[in-house]
Computed example of a mutant assay.
Amino acid sequence: MSDIVLHGYWRSGTSYRTRIALALKGLDYDYRAVDLRAGEQHGETYRALQPQGLVPAMEVGGDVLVQSPAIIEYLEERWPEPALLPTGPVDRAAVRGMAAIIGCDVHPLGNLRILKYLTGELGQPPESVRSWVNRWIGDGFAALETLIAKHGGAFAFGDRPGLVECYLLPQVYSAARFQTDLSPFPKLMAVAERALADERIAAAHPDRQPDADGETK
């Protein structure tokens, strides 16, 4: 039994990015599935753990950490090697900025609760929701394509996978679900394909999680 317990959902982008970070750090953890479609995140038990009712939450050493950026930063500080960030302050800021394009400006606009609001309270049809998601993915990926051309090597920043890949791969997975045209982003997609060839990262894929059910919608 591991000292780390990750509460997540197989298809959640934030859970996926946290799994990648744990995998790149080589850390073992116990996984506790939270079924978002069944509403388990709103139950008293989970709300006592994570007051927002969002995934992931991570228990470690008797403490509970929430919000994937904070969890990943904790992992980097607690287990600095292998590093997710480069060494210099400017390079570290550049990597954090690339990750934030997804974490701050793309992913939040297409997560489950936003999509439910669009289809529920606002009554938007599926084609409008798809257009909404694709707009923000396209804007973010266009910026990342430029930054990868500037900073990238084999991966998004330099020649080994790190923080950017933690954020990028879940968004590429989401883009495929929403049929986003990814042909304008060849450098970004080359990074994603190379990262997915790494077995550590591949093991974090949604389809390989114990609660995966094959649902694609």
Rank of each mutant, 00 (worst) to 15 (best):
L65T: 02
L144W: 08
A70T: 06
M58L: 14
V90Q: 06
M58D: 02
R92S: 03
E73I: 01
A83E: 13
Q41R: 09
A70H: 02
S128C: 04
V133Q: 08
I148N: 11
E121G: 05
S131D: 13
A143I: 06
D91Q: 06
V129C: 10
W79R: 07
C166Y: 09
E73Q: 11
R78P: 05
T87N: 09
E165M: 10
T87D: 14
L65M: 05
V95R: 13
R47L: 15
A149C: 10
M58A: 02
V64Q: 03
L75Y: 07
A154P: 01
P51S: 04
G103H: 07
L65P: 00
L118I: 03
L163C: 04
E44I: 00
A93R: 00
L49Y: 11
A99R: 05
K150E: 14
L115C: 10
G138D: 10
Q124L: 15
A99F: 03
I71C: 01
V95C: 12
A38R: 07
I101A: 06
C104D: 14
A48D: 11
R92I: 00
L147E: 15
R130H: 03
R96A: 13
P86K: 04
H42Q: 12
Q124E: 12
M58G: 01
A38L: 05
R92T: 03
S131R: 15
P80S: 10
M98T: 13
W136C: 10
G140H: 06
E76F: 03
G39Y: 01
Q124N: 05
E59M: 09
V133D: 03
Q50K: 07
M98L: 04
G120K: 09
Y167E: 14
M58C: 01
L112A: 03
P170M: 11
P69R: 01
A149R: 13
A100Q: 10
P82T: 14
A83W: 11
L169G: 04
R160I: 06
M98Q: 08
H151T: 04
N111T: 10
S131H: 10
L36D: 12
G120N: 04
E59A: 13
A143C: 12
L109T: 01
M98C: 08
P86N: 06
R78T: 15
N134G: 11
Y46C: 09
T87Q: 10
G152Y: 09
W132S: 07
R130Q: 13
P69S: 04
F155Y: 15
E76V: 08
D159S: 06
L85N: 15
T45I: 10
I137E: 10
P82L: 13
P125A: 08
P82V: 13
I102R: 12
L84C: 11
G140E: 12
E59K: 12
D159G: 08
R130I: 08
T45S: 14
I71F: 00
F141M: 14
Y117M: 05
W136I: 01
A154Y: 08
V133Y: 00
L65G: 00
V90D: 09
G103E: 12
C166P: 07
G53Y: 05
I114Q: 03
